[in-house]
Design a binder for these strands. Sequence first.
DNA 1: AAATATTTTTAGGCTAGACTAAATTATTTT
DNA 2: AAAATAATTTAGTCTAGCCTAAAAATATTT
Lengths: 223, 223
Amino acid sequence: MSEVITQSIQDYLKHIYELNEHGGSASTNDLAARLNIAPASVTGMLQKLANSTPPLVLYKKHQGVTLTKNGEKAALEVIRHHRLLETFLVTTLGYSWDEVHGEADKLEHVISEDFEARMAKALGNPTRDPHGELIPTADLTMPADESCPLASLRTDETATVRRVSDDDPALLRHLREIGVVPEVKITVKNYSEFDGNLTIRVEGHKSNVVLGTAVTSQVFVDK
Amino acid sequence: MSEVITQSIQDYLKHIYELNEHGGSASTNDLAARLNIAPASVTGMLQKLANSTPPLVLYKKHQGVTLTKNGEKAALEVIRHHRLLETFLVTTLGYSWDEVHGEADKLEHVISEDFEARMAKALGNPTRDPHGELIPTADLTMPADESCPLASLRTDETATVRRVSDDDPALLRHLREIGVVPEVKITVKNYSEFDGNLTIRVEGHKSNVVLGTAVTSQVFVDK
DNA sequence: AAATATTTTTAGGCTAGACTAAATTATTTT
DNA sequence: AAAATAATTTAGTCTAGCCTAAAAATATTT
């Protein structure tokens, strides 16, 4: 009864999951943009996913899409693969954190459950990937994430960097250079009302850096 | 001008290469059997590959198929991926030699050239995979193979095991158990005219083993 | 050499997953 | 609230890669 979850379906589910994390339901257009697929094609796939047995998404015309429990499990499986792979590539093959994303995007659909288990074991069952993003557990639940955007901090607040968005390799290289990486402590020295810029002191670095919201909205911290 | 080499085309080329190694040109039927695809579908694909620019195969109706230089390069690329992956899985993730084949079959189509290069480096540029099969070089040439089937040896001949066929996991487990693995020395104690059985002494093992041609034709040695 | 069997090819079809163009629905502005 | 704009869906196509059934070519047996 249960239909095959193809690579392309896995991609849809993964991106729906990520869009659902932020706002409520994912819009056809946002999904299309992320997947690099025409909106009309996305509509077609969403109809298919909603009508499959069991349904993988909840979809009402013109009202966006969310995952069902089944869809969420499938999404978390892919995300677990992805984040374990990123960790594995960094520790085993010497990739740097800005190079792993594309490779993991391809491998995540292909590795077996055995491969997944062996990686997890070899890495000591890590809970976060190299960007600090939480890795879903083996039983496919996503640990709670307490962190908030660096952009939400104000003058004199201190926090620990937890994770950074891995979308943009150039941003990742920049963050590495200025030392803004997971588990590092930072202090906000100044907040600018006008442009939202934050002046930051990074633990172990002598000079402060000024970061715009394009950066501070992509870095997440625990106070 | 040059068309995309899909996963499925890679599989065709890889199997054509392997069939070409033995007899001359590969037959539609043999290819179909290896690929688990209907013969009619194979014909269609061969026509496509022969008419692509550049052509990847030489194909004349009813006369089987061989690879062009371009086709051979593409095949060797896939085979290099496969064999490096098998080696990598064994040394890095503790797979045993009978478990790696399926996983490598999926990954071989997906890894980047960067991934290939990193594996090769991490493994010290190996020349053979865990089954002793030769790994094509980085510039895509296949090293010469001097080995001959164990089945061709006769009483009192001594040889070194070079490689074993990796098609059958059960056979691999059996060979490992009796110690018939690459680089081990063996001596033929007896040859039976009637059934082709060979009685073998394996270096470091006290008792002899008797092997039928189903086994000895899959093991390759250097005299 | 004819008859039979095997292999291969042709012809026509199907599905997944994409596309474009046009139609519809929702949202925003005036 | 009408008009304009934006987002979404429908309708109709396309391609890759497979399938089956039937026809044709080749190989083998008698």
